[in-house]
Write a protein that binds this DNA or RNA. Structure first.
Lengths: 201, 201
DNA sequence: GTCTATAACTCGATAGAC
DNA sequence: GTCTATCGAGTTATAGAC
């Protein structure tokens, strides 16, 4: 039997879908059971309770979320190239998983501050390499002076927020689904261009 | 009796606090009653049910959210000045109401697409004036070519996302509350500077 | 492992006294 | 208007048959 067909995998896929769409508080075990094509009792057989099922999903998602970021942050690429790689990779990823960032941020805001740290206790993401790279480019006079933290926040913000605010943007800008998707596709090159134009000398 | 001391006002203030922190699904009528210093039955006396109380809060918040944006978007200022006004006004506002954007976006993502439109049926926000202003500046050759929608998304993204992702940024960048707040204060000038550097010729 | 049935509990809502 | 007490629907979780 393929791994994806196992009951456990079906539950995890269903739970991921329901939790990311409705959040922990809004999700019902019944919804997850229905989505997985099984009954509620089986959920408790595989995962003792709702909390454990949630944590399983949440930990996996948030670690994956940052693992991919860290890979780019730590790569050997030059700064401008790295900015391009990050934005296109990241926007592409979020196009295919539009609910994940809002889900993670909503759930993190419900929990104590050190919950994030606990989540990454084995492998905490850290942007040090990118920070030092930015500082070096500033020092070398290749880009204008800017605080690395601010630049990194700007980059992540522009990649992620349009998806989190999709319903609002669609309504306010009066665009349909297709037009919105086109705009997002274009952002894969627009955002890095915007950033590089701002920091280059 | 001052308006703020009336029971209705106490309920609204409590509901706002609890709903924005926990979301509609996560909020309990008991939490709101406790926060307001009254009992559950009184909530139902003033607002028939949870849904009506929620809609009251949500409508007020989301309209206020956009009303302030629209004011700046429609002002008579020149483009660069307008960008500065928007960012400093907006970041300042979110510093004092850090939960609101995440709350609004989370709730909007739970509801049908035309829920947003229904919310603004009387006074839909529209960025047309700013869009035309950007187009004019591009045409006049005062700024480099850029799609107005992309520029507007960039601006809003950089103002809002750091607050939505606060727990994550704090953990990943390893900064404490005070340092985070300092970074946000600086963003009131950093963000417009970042944008203008990118689009100016 | 998977199901049905149901226990145990949470929570929104109402009844009714004051 | 405000409170206490309680109902009843909906949910998580468990028991027990297969």
């Amino acid at each position: 039997m393929k791994k994806d067909d196992s009951t456990e995998e079906k539950i995890l896929a269903a739970a991921r879908k329901v939790f990311t769409a409705k959040g922990m508080a809004g999700a019902r075990m019944q919804d997850i059971a229905d989505e997985a094509g099984i009954n509620k009792a089986l959920l408790h057989y595989y995962f003792r309770n709702k909390e454990q099922l949630f944590e399983n999903i949440f930990k996996k998602l948030s670690q994956g979320f940052w693992q991919q970021i860290s890979q780019v942050f730590d790569s050997e690429e030059a700064l401008f190239k790295k900015i391009e790689s990050f934005c296109s990779m990241y926007i592409e990823k979020v196009i295919h998983n539009p609910y994940i960032p809002l889900f993670i941020m909503h759930e993190l805001n419900q929990r104590p501050v050190n919950f994030v740290k606990k989540m990454f206790n084995d492998n905490p993401p850290n942007p040090n390499r990118l920070v030092m790279q930015i500082q070096a480019e500033v020092k070398a006079g290749n880009i204008r002076p800017i605080a690395p933290q601010q630049l990194i926040m700007n980059m992540i913000s522009m990649c992620v927020l349009p998806f989190i605010g999709k319903p609002m943007f669609m309504s306010v800008m009066n665009v349909d689904e297709k037009t919105f998707n086109d705009l997002m596709q274009k952002r894969k090159t627009e955002v890095p261009e915007f950033i590089i134009n701002s920091i280059k000398k």
